[in-house]
Design a protein around this nucleic acid. Structure first.
Lengths: 207, 207, 207, 207
DNA sequence: CATGAATGAGCCTTCATTCAT
DNA sequence: TATGAATGAAGGCTCATTCAT
C-alpha cells in the first residue's frame, strides 16, 4: 500500500519534472510559469505543490536530475585498453546524438544552467559538483593512459581534464553559434586536436 | 544644437545601457526589472522609454553593444608575422584579464546570451553574426598562416576557426565550473593543445 | 455498537476541536488553515470533513464549546451566604489562573470571539447568548444579595450585572495592554472598586 | 513642486488608509483582501504598492493612525478643577458617541486590535504603547486629584489607572454583548462605580 | 527632457473543499 | 473509518508599460 503510493508519488513527480523541463527548454527558467508547467503536466496549479515546495525547488530538482544523468554516462568506460580512440569514439557518439536531435533538453540546459549558476548558489553547487565528478573521472582516465604509455606523460592530468571537459561542452554550442555548421568537419578537427594533444610526443613524431 | 542633443542622447543611452548591464549581471535578463534599471541609472521609469521602446529593446541593444565591442578586439591583430605565438599571447592576455576580474560583465553575458539565443531570435541573430565575424577573422588568419607555412596546411581553416573560437569561449567558464581552478596550469595545457594542433607536423616533429 | 461508535465519534470530534483551538490560538481564526488543524489533530484533510461540514462549522463549534464551558462555571455558586466575598474570591481565583497561565486558550478566544462577533452572525448569537446567561446569573445573584441586605438595593441588578461581567472580562486583557502589569496591585483596586460599588451605603459608611 | 507632490502623496495615502479601514471593519484584518481595499479606494492593485510596502504595512499604519488619534483625545483635559465630574462627563460623552454611531470604526478596531496584538508583535507594540500613554495620563490625573483631596489617597494611582482604562474600554463592548442593552442604565451604574471608587472615604461617608 | 502616478495582467503560492480508493 | 490526490478560485504582490503634467 505504502510502497504503491510512494511509487506513484515518485512517478508523478518525475512526470512533472519532465513537463517542467519542456517548459524551461521553451522559455528558460524564469519565463516559464508555474501555470504553464501545470498545463504541460496536466495538473492543477495547487496540486503541483504536493510534489514541490516552490518553483525554485523544481528548478533545483530538474537540474540535479539532468546533471546526475549526464554524470552517470561517464562511469561506463572506466576499463578500456585503447584510451584515446575509445574516448574520441565516445565523444563523437555523444556529440553527434546531441547535434542530430536539434535543441535537446540537455543542450539547452547546459547554457541555462551555466547562466543560472552565476547567480543561484544551489545551482552553482550542483554544477560545480557535476563538473568535479567529470573532472575526476577524466583525470583518472588520463593518469591510467599515462601509466600505460598511451598518453603524453608531461601533461598535468587535472588541468588537462578540465580543459577536455570544457572543450567538449563547448562543442554542444556549435549549432547555436552557426546554424549551418558542418558537424563532421568540425569534429574532424576536434579529433585531430585531441589526438595531437594527448598522444605521447614519441608516438606522435613516429606517427 | 541638434548634434549636441543627439550626442547627449547617445551618452544617456549608453549610460542606461551600462546600468542595465549591471542589473542583468546581478539578476539575469528576465529577473532584472525595469524599475531596478531605472534606479541604477538614476532616471524615472517613464523617461527610460524615451531611449528604449521596451525591455526587449534594452536587452537587444546591450547584447549588440557587448558583442560589437568584443568583435572589435579581433580586428586588431590582422597583420602579424608570428601568427601562432601572437594569437596565444593575445588569448592569454584576454582570458587572464577575464579571470582576474571575477564575474565580469562580459563573462556573465556569454552564458546568458547563449541561453537567450536558444529562444530569442533577435539575440540568436546577433550571436550568430558575432560568431561569424570572429569565425571569418580567425579563418582568414589561419589561411594566412597556412600560406606562410606557419600553420598546418591540412587543417580546414573554417572548421578550425569554429573550433578555436568555441574552445576559447569555453575557457571563460572554467571558474564557474571549478571555483578553485588554477588558471595558469589550465592555460598551459590550453597553449600546448593549440600549438600542437596548429603547428605544421614537420616543425612539430622537429621541435 | 452504535453507542460505542457515537462515543468514539464524539471523542474524535472533541480532539479535533482541541487541535483547532491550538491552531486558532497561534494564528487566529482566519489564518489557521484546515491542513494545519489536520496536522495538529493527526488526521487527513478528507477525514476532517466527516466530523465538520466546513471550517466555519469548526469555528462555531469551538466557540460554542468554549463559551458553554465558561458559562458552566457560573452555575456553581448559586447558593452562598456571603455573596460579595464569595464572588470576589471566585473572580480572583479565575483571573489569577488566567493570568498565571500566559496566553491561555480562553483568554485569546475572548478577544478573537469579540472581533468575530462583529461580523459573523452565528458567533454573535453564541456570544450574546453566552453573555445573557452570565448576565442573568449575575443579576439573580445581585437580587438575592439585595434581598438579604448584602448588596446596595439602589443598584439596578440588570445593568449592574452587565457592568460587572464586562469589567471582569476586561481584566483578562490587562497583560496584553501592559506586559509588565502587576496583577496583585491591579486586582486590589479591582476588589476595592467592586466592594464599594456593591456594599450597601449604610454598611459602607459604617465599615 | 515637491511639496505639492508630497502633499498629494500623503493625501492619497490617507485615502487608501480610510478605505482599508472600511474594509477591515467589514471583514477583519485577514479576510479583507488587497483587491477589495483597492476597489474601495478606487485604485488599481498595483498602484497600492506605491503607498504601502505590504498588507502588513497597511494594517500597522492604520492601527497606528487610529491609536494615535484616540490617544490625542486624552491630552485635552489636563487642567481641570473638578477632576471626577469632568472625567465622568468626558467618558460619558465619548461612550455615548461610540454607542450612538453603531459599529464605529474605532469600536471594531479595538476588538480586532486586541486579537491581532496577541499574535502580531508590531501591533502588540503599538497597542501597549497606546495603553501606556493613556495609563500615564490617567495616573497623572489621579495623582493630581489625590494632591487636591478630590480622590481617595489610598488608591495606587498606577493600578487604578490601568483598571479605569480597561474598564472604560470594556464599556465599548456592551452593545456586542447585548444588542438590546440600555446605555443610560448601564452608564448610571458605571458612574456610581467610579464615583464610589475614586471619592475619598471621608467625603463619601459624608455624602 | 523628465517625472512618477497609474494600470492591469500575470506571477507564485495557499487554501477550503471534494472524491476515488 | 480513513487517506491523500486533486481542484481551482483567490490571495498578496511585481512588473512592463503608459500618460498627464
Amino acid at each position: 500500500m505504502r510502497t504503491v503510493n510512494a511509487e506513484r508519488h515518485a512517478e508523478k513527480r518525475a512526470e512533472i519534472l519532465e513537463a517542467a523541463g519542456r517548459c524551461f527548454l521553451r522559455n528558460g527558467f524564469h519565463r516559464a510559469s508555474i501555470s504553464a508547467i501545470c498545463a504541460e503536466a496536466g495538473i492543477s496549479p495547487g496540486h503541483l505543490y504536493h510534489y514541490f515546495d516552490s518553483k525554485e525547488a523544481i528548478i533545483t530538482a530538474l537540474v540535479e536530475d539532468r546533471l546526475d544523468n549526464a554524470a552517470r554516462r561517464y562511469q561506463l568506460l572506466i576499463n578500456v585498453d585503447d584510451i584515446v580512440p575509445t574516448l574520441l569514439a565516445e565523444l563523437e557518439r555523444y556529440l553527434r546524438e546531441e547535434h542530430s536531435s536539434g535543441f535537446t533538453l540537455k543542450k539547452m540546459m547546459l547554457s541555462d544552467i551555466l547562466g543560472e549558476a552565476s547567480r543561484n548558489p544551489a545551482i552553482a553547487a550542483l554544477f560545480t559538483s557535476f563538473c568535479n565528478k567529470r573532472y575526476r573521472y577524466a583525470a583518472d582516465l588520463l593518469r591510467k593512459g599515462q601509466a600505460s604509455g598511451q598518453i603524453d606523460p608531461s601533461l598535468d592530468p587535472d588541468a588537462t581534464a578540465e580543459l577536455l571537459i570544457s572543450t567538449a561542452d563547448a562543442a554542444e554550442t556549435w549549432s547555436i553559434r552557426n546554424p549551418d555548421h558542418e558537424f563532421d568537419k568540425n569534429f574532424a578537427v576536434f579529433r585531430t586536436m585531441l589526438e595531437r594533444l594527448l598522444t605521447p610526443p614519441a608516438r606522435h613524431a613516429a606517427g
